[in-house]
Design a protein around this nucleic acid. Sequence first.
DNA 1: TGATGACTACCCAAAAATGGCGAGTTGCTG
DNA 2: CAGCAACTCGCCATTTTTGGGTAGTCATCA
Lengths: 238, 238
Amino acid sequence: MKQQVLEGFIERIDGASSLGDLEREVSEIRDRLSAQHVLYHWINSEGRVFGAGTYDPAWRVHYLDERYMRIDPVVQGARKRFHPLNWRNLDWSSKDVRDFRADAQDAGIGPQGLTIPIRGPGGQMAHLTATMGCSDAEFASFNEANGRYLILLGHFFNQKALELSEIRNDDKDVALSPREVDALTFLALGYTRSQAADTLSISEHTLRVYIESARHKLSAMNTTHAVAKALNLGLLVI
Amino acid sequence: MKQQVLEGFIERIDGASSLGDLEREVSEIRDRLSAQHVLYHWINSEGRVFGAGTYDPAWRVHYLDERYMRIDPVVQGARKRFHPLNWRNLDWSSKDVRDFRADAQDAGIGPQGLTIPIRGPGGQMAHLTATMGCSDAEFASFNEANGRYLILLGHFFNQKALELSEIRNDDKDVALSPREVDALTFLALGYTRSQAADTLSISEHTLRVYIESARHKLSAMNTTHAVAKALNLGLLVI
DNA sequence: TGATGACTACCCAAAAATGGCGAGTTGCTG
DNA sequence: CAGCAACTCGCCATTTTTGGGTAGTCATCA
């Protein structure tokens, strides 16, 4: 895939005005790459999955039914790594995973694949994947030729998709006071209330006030929930 | 900045073999863009800040001393948004923030700026920023001309920086069993132990075993800590 | 086939967190 | 200048969590 071709896609993705446009672009990219499949999909902060891709709808349903996301090494790897994932290099050693791969191959997916992990604020996570049914060697040259451009494409896809999907997080306007952030941060770091209070040089009771008010602002049921929400909203950095 | 020029940078960033190389690239990019400053910096999962940029070191120290990251609308905005941030569109209404901006301008930074937020696994967060001392109108055309390419540059910078910085997360190899993930997920969602146990149709005691073993695997001090770590490691999706 | 790890279940006592009550200062905003 | 939000401190009773010990089944792995 030549740089000029990429440019064309970026322009078009940039100009997309509906998710259907993205759907068409995905197919187009698959054809241009002569890939087996191309899939762009993302997960919002509530865990809902959206996507545009050339996978068989039946496979998508089957995947969700079997809860394959819990063992799929691509999903696991994308959460932990920053670089594009060559499926070949993932850990396929356990039995569950091998069964899953066999199932996917029966559905016409793989065995080769390249997945670009992409992240957004608020727990959003997206992937751009290209799959191939070829040999390792052939895939290596595919990867060499297209890997970098897939990163860029994935990035643009993601921005557009987030724009178009109007995914809104109800809690996005929550703002915590500096002391509330301090309190939740130390709790997230594993401090007990008394340790956190000591560290901040305030009484434990005062600390409690911050935790409580942060809890209410975040509509959280308890401290753990508040910390989890704050983390997901990017309110804390630990 | 023309596409060809960008290509040159990407090649060079790709070939960088030390953080010093990135430092040089940042200066080079500043000069090519005729920008006031260009800064690339990132924050690892322990909260340490690394970076390469043309800001005056005294300003960096001052920034950290004043804990400006807590009020800097660029930092706040980058955590919550996905798109490039034009500094003009940020919320500068509160007094603290205006004072901060005045302070930054005294240090020769701004008032115009464009910041690209970039995210990685494990709580990593990076920014690529270009600043200008020009008018709104002039900056609009700078933005139009360079915004897209800065996104790409930021992405490549980030990959390279993560490669070179050898930032390692000791917990990165932690793997939780499905039940452990279930348990922590419900706790992160605000369920009490008994609610989570009911939901999973297991006894509360069994649930405790999962929480405990997850805690040990994560080397966490308590449940809240375990949930925070698991979230940061991308082990949970809530 | 023996080992390992995941999954399931129980008890007890101590430590920590929660819910609800009240009260005063400071400083920014309208 | 009045209002509002953030920051600080305290008590009591109840609920929840935690630490440590024990034990069996089942499936996968070397």
